[in-house]
Amino acid sequence: MAGYSLERLNFLVVDDNKHMRALVKTILHALGSKSVVEAADGADAFKELRHFPADIIICDWNMSPLDGLDFVRLVRTGKDSPNPFAAIIMLTGHTEMHRVVEARDAGVHEFLAKPISAKALYSRIRAIIERPRPFIRTATYFGPDRRRRQIEYKGRERRKTVKQEQVVDQSSVGLSQAEVEALLSG
């Protein structure tokens, strides 16, 4: 059987719990990753990013002094951010819908509810590989396009300056029912 090789990807794992970091790192190594760097909080992670070109950041929400959400905002909109386009997977036990929306609005690519498994983590990595999204900059947001589904929109088109050549096919993108239920079940 064939699949995506993760061998050349750089992963940054950010979690204040060393056991969770060990678990994520173990999974990534088992999936063939060679380059995994750890950080214990958002501030440490931001420092790491200055010299470690992370392709995918896997970060926890609950950390201090800089929590996961602040870290994501810093990566996306910080003036000295080394990589505002880095793919970010938010790893969290906070799966209530308002929390999901909050993280989405901070600019994360994917959510992964704890407790995690190898299959669940890989499914989010695969989604990032297979479905690259354009980034959007507005007065209040910078991050991956939050419109993950192709739905018929009957309201006023607020994206009136969209250039046709920049529109990407998103027809296959969307949260599965299982994901939505997982997120809603908290």
């Binding site: 993760l6 995918i56 690259p132 980034f135």
Partner: peptide, 21 residues
């Protein structure tokens, strides 16, 4: 809104093949 197509570095780094996941 401004649409920005970021450089897709993942595509260049991730190969699909028998050694993959």
């Amino acid at each position: 809104p401004e649409f920005i197509q970021p450089p897709n570095t993942l595509k260049n780094k991730v190969k699909y093949g028998p050694d993959g996941v």
